[in-house]
C-alpha cells in the first residue's frame, strides 16, 4: 500500500499524549520534588504507556500526577511500602502498574516522579 511512513518512534507518544501535556506533567512533578532525576526517553515511554493512563486521568479516581494533595498519604507511608504496593498491586492499582517492561529501578524512579517523593 502507498504508506506515509513514520520513522520517529517518539511521534507516537506525541500523538497519544500531546508533548505539551506530558512535559507539563513531568515538570509539575519535578517542581514538587526538584531533586528527582529527569526520566530518560525509554522511561517517558513507559510512563506514557502505563502510569499516565490512570494518574493523568481524573475519571480513574487514582491520585493525579502533579497534584501534591493526592499523594500526601502515599508519601507519608514511605517509599518502601509504596514500592511493595506498586509491585504487587493494591485496590485499583494493578501489579507493576501495568508495566511489565519496567525494572525495579524503572519502577522506583517512576514512582518517585509520579508521586513526587521528596529527598530522603
Amino acid at each position: 500500500m502507498s504508506n506515509y511512513e513514520i520513522s520517529n518512534n517518539n511521534k507516537t507518544s506525541r500523538i497519544v499524549l500531546g508533548s505539551t501535556v506530558l512535559v507539563a506533567f513531568i515538570v509539575s512533578a519535578l517542581f514538587i520534588s526538584p531533586s528527582i532525576a529527569a526520566p530518560g526517553a525509554r522511561q517517558i515511554k513507559l510512563l506514557s504507556n502505563n502510569c499516565l493512563q490512570c494518574h493523568a486521568n481524573p475519571e480513574s479516581t487514582a491520585p493525579l500526577m502533579g497534584v501534591a494533595k493526592d499523594w500526601k498519604a502515599v508519601i507519608e507511608q514511605g517509599e518502601d511500602v509504596t514500592m511493595k504496593n506498586l509491585v504487587l498491586g493494591i485496590r485499583g492499582m494493578p501489579p507493576l502498574g501495568y508495566c511489565s517492561a519496567c525494572s525495579e529501578q524503572d519502577l522506583r524512579e517512576l514512582m518517585r516522579l509520579v508521586a513526587g517523593f521528596p529527598d530522603k
Partner: peptide
C-alpha cells in the same frame, strides 16, 4: 511495552 506506536498508514 516498547514495541508500541504507529508504523504507517494509508
Amino acid at each position: 511495552d516498547l514495541l508500541s506506536g504507529l508504523v504507517s498508514y494509508d
